[in-house]
Amino acid sequence: MKFGLMVSTGPYTHQASDTAFQFAKAALARGHEIQRVFFYHDGVNNATKLTEPPQDDRHIVNRWSKLAAEHKIDLVVCIAAALRRGIKDEVLANGFRISGLGQLVDSGIKADRLVVFGD
């Protein structure tokens, strides 16, 4: 089955990005496909490579990048939400791309399920 995910909170402050990641990992382990992860609202903050958590903490941004590379997952950051919050191409971590809100609707159309993770 194809899953589209939406993440609408930033990393660390709220658990939603972690839950979305665990969900994605479990879905892939069960042989499902993650068609796209769309980052909206403060969720765009999951995409910056400037993120530097303490050594003993999980690296939420790099974790998404790694999962995307291993499973060819499309990580899309909403352009309108990103620009508002200072997220631009030059700060994007590997695997993320900036695109329009249409990509969220497109995910809803193409995926079998769209699951929203947020606050």
Partner: peptide
């Protein structure tokens, strides 16, 4: 309120 993004064409009908 939202910018037009090139390459962001709707994937809706016809067909689908």
């Amino acid at each position: 309120m939202t910018d037009e993004i090139p390459g962001d064409e709707p994937a809706g009908p016809p067909g689908g």
